[in-house]
C-alpha cells in the first residue's frame, strides 16, 4: 500500500476508496481504465456520466458482483473501511456493511414485500421488527402493501422496496444505481428526498449513480463525472454546479431545459439544509 499517496486525513475519513481500478469482461473487453474515487464517511457522493460510461460496472466492481458476469478487476485496489474488497465474497461484503441497490430495482417479484425485506436480513444477525418498522416509517406505502407480491408494485414502489431492503440490512454504505430510472419527476423527487433523509438521519454513506445530474447535485456533496471508463472531472458539487463545462455538458442535458433543472437544484439545496 503506498502510504505516501494517502494523506492521513483521507485515510481516516473515507469509508470507500477506489484506486486506479481496471475492469475487464470475458478476459477481453476492458471497461474501466484506471478509475479512482472516494466516498467520505457519512456523505452522499454522486457518480455521473453518459450511458455506457461504466458507472454500473464501477458499482459491481465495488460490491463484488462482477464475477456473475465473467468480469474481473484486473488492476488497482478497492478499500472499504480500509480493507481490500477484492477477493471478498459478495455476501461477506454485505455482512460488513456494504449494500448495492442494483440498477433496475431487481425486486423479488413473486415474493411479498415483507418477504423481500426478510431476504435482505439474511446476512445479518438479530434483525427485528424494529428494523422493518424503520423501513415502513420511511416508506408508508410499503407498509400498506406488505402482504402483496412485489411484482405488482408500481415502479416507484419497487424502487422504495429496493431501498427498503438496503435499510433493513443496516449497512454503513449504500451504492444506489439509478434510483430514478423510469420514474416520473414527482416520484424521483420523492425518492431523493428520502435518500437525503436516510443519509442525514441514519448517517449512512451513499454512492449514487444518477442520470438526472441536477437531482444528484442537489443531494450530493461531492461528485465524480466519468467518461468511457475513467473519471474526467470531480469536485464538491457546489463548485461543479458553477463550472461552465459541467453546466453545458451535464446539467444542460436535461430534456426539459436548463433553467428548470437549476430551479430544482436550488430547491433541493434548501430542502437538504433544512433536513440535516
Amino acid at each position: 500500500m503506498d502510504a505516501a499517496a494517502r494523506s492521513p486525513e483521507t485515510a481516516t475519513s473515507n469509508i470507500l476508496e477506489v484506486r486506479n481500478i481496471e475492469v475487464v469482461f470475458n478476459h477481453t473487453v476492458q471497461v474501466l481504465r484506471g478509475l479512482s474515487l472516494a466516498v467520505a464517511a457519512g456523505s452522499i457522493t454522486a457518480l455521473l456520466g453518459s450511458n455506457g460510461a461504466g458507472k454500473t460496472t464501477t458499482m459491481k466492481a465495488i460490491s463484488g458482483l462482477l464475477g456473475l458476469e465473467n468480469g474481473a478487476v484486473t488492476g488497482g485496489e478497492i478499500l472499504f473501511n480500509g480493507a481490500s474488497t477484492l477477493n471478498v465474497k459478495p455476501h461477506t461484503l454485505v455482512r460488513n456493511g456494504l449494500f448495492h441497490v442494483m440498477e433496475g430495482r431487481h425486486v423479488f417479484e413473486d415474493l411479498t414485500v415483507e418477504e423481500n425485506l426478510t431476504a435482505a436480513t439474511y446476512a445479518r444477525t438479530g434483525a427485528s421488527a424494529r428494523d422493518f418498522d424503520r423501513v415502513y416509517d420511511y416508506f408508508p406505502r410499503l407498509k400498506e402493501r406488505r402482504k402483496g407480491l412485489a411484482g405488482y408494485l408500481s415502479g416507484g414502489e419497487q424502487q422504495m422496496l429496493a431501498i427498503g431492503r438496503a435499510l433493513v440490512a443496516n449497512p454503513r454504505i449504500i451504492l444506489l444505481d439509478e434510483p430514478s430510472l423510469g420514474l416520473s419527476p414527482l416520484l424521483t423527487e420523492e425518492i431523493f428526498t428520502i435518500i437525503a433523509r436516510i443519509n442525514a438521519e441514519q448517517g449512512t454513506s451513499m454512492l449514487v449513480v444518477e442520470q438526472n445530474a441536477a437531482m444528484a447535485f442537489a443531494v450530493a456533496t461531492h461528485a465524480y463525472i466519468m467518461e468511457t471508463g475513467r473519471i474526467v472531472i470531480d469536485g464538491p458539487t457546489e463548485r461543479l454546479a458553477r463550472d461552465p463545462d459541467v453546466r453545458e455538458f451535464y446539467l444542460g442535458i436535461g430534456e426539459e431545459g436548463t433553467s428548470r433543472d437549476y430551479r430544482q437544484v436550488k430547491h433541493y439545496k434548501r430542502r437538504k439544509r433544512w433536513l440535516s
Binding site: 460490491s63 458482483l65 456473475l68 465474497k89 459478495p90 455476501h91 461484503l93 454485505v94 455482512r95 449494500f99 448495492h100 441497490v101 442494483m102 431487481h106 425486486v107 423479488f108 431476504a119 435482505a120 439474511y122 446476512a123 445479518r124 431492503r165 440490512a169
Partner: peptide, 9 residues
C-alpha cells in the same frame, strides 16, 4: 443477482 446483492450466500 439480486440475491447475491443482498448478502444471500
Amino acid at each position: 443477482a439480486a440475491a447475491y446483492s443482498m448478502g444471500i450466500d
